[in-house]
Amino acid sequence: MNVILRHPRREVTIDAPISVDRMLKALDIVPETVLVIRGSDLLTRDTTLGRDDTVEVRPVISGG
């Protein structure tokens, strides 16, 4: 499956099926710092991602 990351924008491939929780652990990302988006849906950490999925991992921390 494909994962779109930002800051800077890039794509990585992860073995699937995998849960959102495990995907974030594999990418060493703290779940509280991102949203995981598939199409127009937000995904909770128990969602299982399939091989054909593409998700965006969108950072939420911003300067102000």
């Binding site: 509280e32 969108r58 939420v60």
Partner: peptide, 10 residues
């Protein structure tokens, strides 16, 4: 929380 304002926006 910041994650919640982002989720609200999306």
């Amino acid at each position: 929380a910041e994650r919640e304002t982002a989720a609200y926006a999306v």
